[in-house]
């Protein structure tokens, strides 16, 4: 069954990973022509116009976009976080629920397989693809950055792991939410909503002290890019919280799914 899950979900994995890789490929190809000494001056002037809060929200106060790595640390990583988050959320909201939505659950449930085993195989498949996506994008960027110039490799490696800390909880939360529904069309919007609202709250929380409390309501706090850029390390607490959140929602899914009415 795991083999089938991997096969069924391969296409969407390739599409989402392809989007990210193509995006970065385009940026790396055109970046050298955009960034030259004249443009850098212009960009620096432009940056001065932006409010400090905004620059902080996009890490532009601690990193400059005058190199490809600089761009990755600021704008580029927004795409990594958002796209891996959206992919993880969609996987969470559809991978189990699809069987009910397509009405194939009536057949699958008649087979000698426990509900928990169905769930386990689907979760393994989803987590495998989420990790693989982050890994592929990470390796691709590593190769391109190596070709384009010097960069802090330790910082980059730590940076490339951070999307996992937000993507896995997003997957688990959406997986749990999906157990309350019978059709994927009902959960698709919710999964996208959760991802984008989470990201928006994270930006708000970075802006000033008044809005800082929003960090408690978003999983993107866990992907603490700013800490990596400033301290060259991942906050261990964030790893623990991410792991606990993922585990909590996955365990809740097992309990809920075992009691669920499947038709």
């Amino acid at each position: 069954m795991l083999k089938r899950e991997l096969k069924v979900n391969l296409k969407s994995f390739l599409i989402w990973t392809g989007i990210l890789v193509l995006l970065f490929m385009t940026v790396y190809l055109i970046y050298p022509s955009i960034i030259n000494s004249d443009n850098i001056k212009m960009i620096d002037e432009m940056m001065k116009i932006f409010p400090k809060e905004m620059l902080k929200a996009f890490n532009m106060d601690i990193a400059s976009i005058d190199t490809a790595y600089g761009w990755l640390k600021t704008e580029g990583f927004i795409f990594v976080l958002l796209i891996t988050g959206v992919y993880a959320s969609i996987m969470g909201s559809t991978i189990v629920l699809k069987e009910e939505s397509d009405k194939t659950i009536e057949y699958l449930n008649s087979l000698p397989i426990k509900r928990s085993a169905i769930l386990t195989k689907k979760i393994i498949c989803a987590i495998f693809y989420i990790i693989l996506m982050i890994l592929i994008v990470g390796i691709f960027n590593l190769i391109c950055l190596t070709l384009s110039g010097t960069f802090d490799i330790k910082q980059y490696l730590l940076l490339s792991i951070t999307p996992l800390l937000s993507a896995l909880p997003l997957f688990a939360i959406n997986l749990f939410i999906s157990t309350f529904f019978n059709k994927t069309k009902n959960t698709f919007g919710i999964s996208l909503g959760i991802t984008f609202i989470s990201y928006f709250l994270q930006i708000l929380s970075e802006m000033n002290e008044v809005t800082e409390f929003f960090k408690y309501f978003t999983v993107y706090t866990l992907a603490d890019v700013r800490n990596v850029l400033i301290n060259n390390s991942i906050n261990f607490e964030m790893i623990i919280i991410s792991f606990l959140l993922t585990t909590l929602f996955i365990l809740s899914t097992y309990i809920k799914y075992n009691k669920k009415e499947l038709v």
Binding site: R4, K103, E106, Y107, S110, P112, I113, N258
Partner: peptide, 20 residues
């Protein structure tokens, strides 16, 4: 619900058959 031995004893054909 999760007794595999019992499940193996049963063959089921739903009214609306939906397969992969």
């Amino acid at each position: 619900k999760n007794n595999l031995e019992q499940k193996k004893l049963i063959g089921y054909l739903p009214s609306e058959i939906c397969l992969y």
